[in-house]
Design a protein around this nucleic acid. Structure first.
Lengths: 344, 344
DNA sequence: TTCACACACGCAATCGTTTGCCATAATTTG
DNA sequence: CAAATTATGGCAAACGATTGCGTGTGTGAA
């Protein structure tokens, strides 16, 4: 038999089917299945048997229609391609499944309009949303938070609960690591200017460098993609810095590849620090010194916060802000400052 | 205002609200919005205005209840962590969004039971499913395909339409590449034995080696994860082969890391070929020679096939089998066979 | 003037559940 | 043994949208 011959999608069994099979009313079946104590045990068993025979499975749409709850949560990411989100998605997925929720993945393609539109159009299709790296304005975010329960990740706004990965504090560590290696000309390789974490990292970079009497340089912006690393590497080389901190690992890895291509050795000629410690940061060449972020945990915490306010009737005394620490993981992409040309 | 104070999730506007605002019947609003030609233009504009004012957005649950169509498709992956699925998810996501469908991501955690259960429990929540690397038996797959329209990826069964990435043909190329480099002792590093593509790759490996009078060796099974690469590397080293073809890139990259740790150089002492060309295969150390698979395309094609049979009434003459070619991408992890010990 | 025929819109049933309310039967209590 | 209570299960109204059918209005032709 060819698959194409297979045209019958038989109507699935409904409560009514089970009811007539068991010889009871629909309401009794409903109760037997969702509130067993409410119906006599012998009736219940008859019903359960019938349900099993008919392979009954409740229609979640109908259920959602009454309860107003879909038991689904949307996770908005800027770009499914970015490995950063994979740890995040893994975290949310695990936690959601554990709570019996299903995850709906939405890719906003780094567009605020698409994010806004989807959030509006689909708001009835899920009980809440996790916004990872939202591109929305504070005002819009505040407005939408009235329509859909939500939690943001790496985006703090007073009107919305959030999980924040404290990369800025890590930046301080990273800068001090570079300074201790003798670097004095250090640049921040900027990500997209619409990115909220990017600005936070830049501010932390400024604070950290100034504390040590070093002038902060900013190069960019660049798209947070591996391909953009080529331009970033060229720009960094041209600027004459001896070390740089990149907005994220993707960009840093892209730089590493370009530098290798151009024959400049890392860290002998240029030290590079990334952010996030994504998949690949440990096996690239050279392995990347980076700010390790608890990304998966961030996903789990965000889900917990969201579900807490979905499931409880009272919202008082609930944690609405979480900050997760990062730490510097030193690998092989950072090293002592190179000797000045002509001097030992 | 603290987020915690924010307790009101106002009831969203319904057709009834719009109807009373516009002073018409519910049915008229419904038609004005979904079948504009059916209602007078001035009434329609009044309705549209009211809908806009009330920020009306249709309840997809209610819609699904009537139509029986949810406009959602589930994508089942064995492990969201595995970068192989990154590209796949990206492909399905793009194609689904383009068709106005939403993607529901399900992680089966490499468990056939979980896969089966979820498929059953959620079958009414989506219109169809894409099964990437299903662990189900042929019989079960056939049975379930009667309940839910589905398309498998990298899993061919006569009862279910499928998209197949032709890695086996690529294995032939890979083996010939190794043979042309002088290798005669070559092993296949096996993935999980429950994995369907793993068996196909092994069979292709056997065919390819035997064609060249080389004895096929099999090492494993190993979990298709980076961490398992350590054991695989040790085993390969111990077996005395000079080259190997790994079940997938993840395993190959793990091997690369372990070999570096043990101080054995690739490809001077051992050549390695991966499969899939996932994210990272190009920037690991050394860059991996691998079988480049059109993963994202596979996702897109699978979605197209699924939607084709969902949207059309007639299923006849529909493509129910697609094979996508792979090609060998030679990078730096393969090289000439090492000289025998003591001989030049 | 009357018949026919669009056209525009409303009525009400429907999808599959859940749940408040009520009727009956069974059990306990005084 | 009557009265009060409890256990059990059925009826019917929601939830929000779609859609077949019917009604009323207006237009043109005979």
């Amino acid at each position: 038999m060819s698959p194409a011959d297979d045209v019958s999608w038989p109507r699935a069994a409904t409560l009514a089917d089970v009811a007539s099979a068991a010889g009871v009313a629909i309401s009794t079946v409903s109760r037997a299945l969702s509130n067993p104590a409410r119906v006599n045990s012998v009736t219940r068993e008859r019903i359960e048997q019938a349900a099993r025979d008919l392979d009954y499975s409740p229609n979640s749409q109908a259920r959602a229609l009454i309860s107003g709850r879909t038991r689904a949560v949307a996770v908005f990411v800027a770009d499914v391609t970015n490995p950063f989100y994979f740890d995040l998605i893994r975290g949310t997925q695990r936690q959601l499944k554990a709570a019996g929720y299903t995850q709906v993945l939405v890719d906003t393609e780094e567009s605020d309009e698409l994010e806004d539109l989807t959030l509006q159009k689909l708001r009835r299709s899920f009980d809440g949303a996790i916004l990872a790296a939202s591109r929305l304005t504070d005002a819009r975010l505040a407005a939408l938070s009235h329509e859909v329960p939500m939690v943001t990740i790496n985006r703090q706004t007073k009107s919305v609960p959030s999980v924040f990965i404290d990369t800025p504090s890590g930046i301080l560590q990273a800068v001090e690591h570079l300074i201790s290696l003798g670097h004095r000309k250090i640049a921040y390789i900027s990500g997209p200017e619409t990115s909220w974490p990017n600005e936070g990292r830049w501010r932390a970079f400024v604070r950290a460098t100034e504390r040590h009497g070093v002038e902060p340089q900013r190069i960019g912006p660049f798209s947070p993609k591996k391909a953009a690393g080529a331009a970033a590497a060229d720009a960094a080389l041209n600027s004459g810095v001896t070390a740089c901190v990149a907005f994220n690992d993707l960009l840093a890895i892209g730089m590493l590849m370009r530098l290798r291509e151009r024959g400049v050795s890392v860290p002998e000629q240029l030290s590079i620090v990334g952010c996030d410690d994504i998949f690949g940061a440990d096996f690239c060449n050279p392995p990347l010194t980076t700010l390790t972020a608890p990304i998966e945990q961030a996903g789990r915490v965000a889900v917990s916060m969201l579900l807490a306010r979905l499931d409880s009737t009272t919202v008082s005394g609930m944690r609405d802000r979480a900050t997760l620490p990062t730490h510097l993981t030193v690998r092989a992409s950072t090293g002592p400052v190179p000797h000045e040309r002509g001097r030992p």
